[in-house]
């Protein structure tokens, strides 16, 4: 049985696939899948009064190879940023 921490790491893979497998390539999320991921997992990003984002701007921020998809590596970049944000929020 994995620990809670190991489970949380595996969960990061499961979250990606939960949305990426619905549309197109299993390791690249299109805009539709990306929208569903954001709206389901972290809708706060779209309603943050200090820094409101749209799904389009969020995708642009992570889509470093500019193919309009979020691949697994780009997803890792996104979750690294979300982790850092979550840590900062924990000190407020």
């Amino acid at each position: 049985m994995v620990t809670k921490f190991e489970g949380a790491i595996n969960c990061m893979v499961d979250v990606f696939h939960k949305y990426s497998l619905e549309h197109g390539h299993p390791h690249a999320m299109n805009r539709k899948a990306f929208r569903k991921l954001i709206e389901t997992e972290c809708p706060e990003l779209l309603t943050n009064p200090k820094d409101p984002k749209t799904v389009e701007t969020l995708l642009k921020e992570v889509d470093s190879n500019k193919d309009d998809l979020m691949n697994f590596e780009e997803y890792l970049f996104m979750i690294t940023r979300l982790m850092v944000d979550a840590h900062e929020a924990s000190h407020k």
């Binding site: 809670k4 921490f5 949380a8 969960c11 979250v15 997992e41 972290c42 979550a86 840590h87």
Partner: peptide
């Protein structure tokens, strides 16, 4: 057991780090 969600995992990473 906690459900798998992005938010839950982020919380576990931050809490474990501080622990």
């Amino acid at each position: 057991m906690e459900a798998c969600s992005l938010k839950n995992s982020l919380k576990i990473f931050v809490d474990t780090f501080h622990k």
